[in-house]
Each structure stands twice: as structure tokens, then as C-alpha cells.
Design a protein around this nucleic acid. Sequence first.
DNA 1: GTCTATAACCTGATAGAC
DNA 2: GTCTATCAGGTTATAGAC
Lengths: 218, 218
Amino acid sequence: MSIPLAQVFQTPIDFNEKMSGKDSSTEQKIKEAARKVFTMKGYAATRTRDIAEEAGINLALLNYYFRSKEKLFEEIMMERMQQMFGTILPILMDQKSTLENKIDLLSEHYIDMLQENPDLPIFILSELREHPGRIQQSIPVAAILEGSKFFQQIKEHNPKLHPIQFMMALLGMVVFPFAARPIFGQLPSVQEIGFEKLMEDRKKLVSGWAKTILNSTI
Amino acid sequence: MSIPLAQVFQTPIDFNEKMSGKDSSTEQKIKEAARKVFTMKGYAATRTRDIAEEAGINLALLNYYFRSKEKLFEEIMMERMQQMFGTILPILMDQKSTLENKIDLLSEHYIDMLQENPDLPIFILSELREHPGRIQQSIPVAAILEGSKFFQQIKEHNPKLHPIQFMMALLGMVVFPFAARPIFGQLPSVQEIGFEKLMEDRKKLVSGWAKTILNSTI
DNA sequence: GTCTATAACCTGATAGAC
DNA sequence: GTCTATCAGGTTATAGAC
């Protein structure tokens, strides 16, 4: 069930190309539809009929290609988790880049990816709450993160700061706005400026703030 | 459908007292069970049978007290949203307290509340994604936030910083660790230190960092 | 490979006895 | 108010024709 490490390290660009699905075979159409519906509504609220309709095919065909709803979901979930974590892990593990470099890259690339997949965070987080086990089944995120160059660099840079606390701050500043978009999106000023514009500006804000935090003595 | 403003402003303490439910009438037992199951699994994945079993009563009784699954859910959702937003809004609207004061209070009280209700954020966010309308039905969070003393104070303190961007950073640093607990909780170092301890330490970290961000010129 | 029809099952809700 | 039994509708999955 675990994914070859090479796949974890594919770049976001490779991934998005694979996702755009120019292969319009029936199987790909179903997968694309499943990706869309599962991500928007979650496993439990999704009916296989919705997916079939979205794919423009018959319900029976879905079970012909993928044995069951559960099996189809597993495939989608695997892909989406790779997209969620595959974007950051290669950056954090890079042995050459500096700490500040990693922060810049993460802020920029992750916001880019989330702009194109705004409901990815809620999907991952809400599906993971009931099956936390899924995560180590697909990618050993925990082990990778903990032993990453990134963690090592944080410890060296500021021994008083626990890398986890910093990681939670950085990811929180980047990911939370997307997870809470249903709320923030209703603020008049967000609607005026536009959520996408705000996130575009946010890239520089977050990387700047993160570096500031890193050097603070709190 | 909208809640009297007085109720929005109840303190977290009042709220928690109401939640502890010493009234063990059947109706309260059902509500308590519903709160637990809905919050853990979400609306779609919850079966009314699960709630009945958790409450130690019969399925028919659930429909006797609350007309339907949907109606019961509405009540729970309303409560939970009040808990989610009722904790911060009074702090942000206070006319007397300073900006730094508000940051300290929010960081401390919100983390306290989330320690007791760790799966509240995912519940709210995942239920809101499909029905973003629910939010203005219960509490006019958007309008309140936008016109709050807090926003005004941020603008005065640092005119170059958009209050929304700061708000997203502050809430992200506080709320995200709980939303992503299924992931962070698997890191060995988190298990060693203990998630609760980390969050306890985090109160001061976040309030410190938030003030630093506020004064940065980025 | 793709469809229609249907089986098998599950879930929310109610009827009616106590 | 509380229970058992059951209905009605919906959902996944499959059988079988084309």
C-alpha cells in the first residue's frame, strides 16, 4: 500500500499535468469525476450516482472499472494526499537550500497549489479525522518530516524554538485561509479585494513573517 | 433563525456550563449523544441509530423529541457555531481593552476552548463547506468582525497591514494545529511531549509572534 | 465495454402497543 | 414517554442483454 519514494518527490508540475487528464478514456473520466465530487462533498456525502452523472456514464460502469465505491475512494485519496504532501516534502528535505530559501519556496509553491485546489485541505483533514491511519499507509509523512533537513536547520538556527511549533505556525498561516475560506470569503472586504488576490499577496507576507518568527526570542 | 445578540456574547464559561449537561433528561441525553457523534463523524456519516445507541435509548425516541435528523443537526450545529465564534467575538469587540490585550486573551482563551473541544474546527469547517449559508443564518460573523474594534485597532496600529491578513495569521496559528491534529499527532516528538503540553506552551508563543508580526514592516 | 433492470441492503421515519 | 415492528425510499452492487 505504500508509495515508492520517487513518486512522493514528483514536482507539483508533474502532478498537475497528470491531473489535467488529457487521456479521456472512460476510466479517466470516472476518476476525474470522482476526484471532483469526493473532494467537494467528502466520502460519506458522495453517492456513486453523482460520480457517474458527473462523468457522463452509467452507474454500472463505475463498478466495472473500480470494484466498489470504497476502492475508487482509496485511489483518489491516495492521489490527493500525495498532492497535499508531495508539494512540501521535497522542499523541506532538500539538502542544499538554506532555511530561508525553504520558507520562500514553501510559501510560494504551496499557495500556488492551493489556489488551484482550494478545497483540498478540508477534504484531507476531514477524511483523515476518522481514519488517521490512512496517512502512514500512503506516505510516511511523520518520519520524513521529523528527520528532514528543515527540522535540522531550524534547530541550528534557533535552539530555543521547537521545530514543531514553527511548522504549525508556517503551515497554519498558509493552509488555514483555504480551510476557512467559507468563513473568510463572506467578509465584504475579502469579496472586494478578491480571495485569490489576497492569497497572492500573502506569499510574501507569510515568508516574511515566518523569518521574523524564526529570529524572535520568544 | 438568527440568534439574539445577547447569546452571541455569552462567555465561554457560561457556554461550557450549559454544555456539561447535568440535566439528564432523555432529551438532554439525546442531544449530548448527537453532539458527540455529529462532531466526530459529520452529518453525512452519522446514522441516527448511532446517536440513539450512544444515548442509550431507542431510535423512535429520537424522532419523538426532534422531528428529524436534519432538525436535530440544526440544533447541534447552532450550538457548536456559537461555541466556535462566541469565544472570540466578545474579545475582538471589546471597546476598552488594548490591541495587545486582545491578542493575549484570544490566544489563551481560544486554545483553552479548543483543548476541550479538539475536533470542533474540522467539524465546523467541513460542514460549512457544503452549506456556507449556515453561518450568516446563525451569527453574522462577517459583519461583526469587519466592524469590530479589533479591526479598527489593527488599522491604526499598522496602516500598511490588512486586518484580514493578520486575522488569518493569528487564527491560523491557533486553530490549524487542532484541525491538523491527525497529522501532527503522529510525529514522534509530538507524542513524546504530548499534544496538550505543546498547545499549552503555544499560548505564549502565538501571542508573542502575533505582536511581532503586527509591528513588522513587511 | 456499455447499458437497463433489479437484487440486496441500509437508513430515516412512523404506526401502534404498552 | 418509551418501546417493537415495519414501511418507504434511497444506495451500492450485480446480473444479464446488447
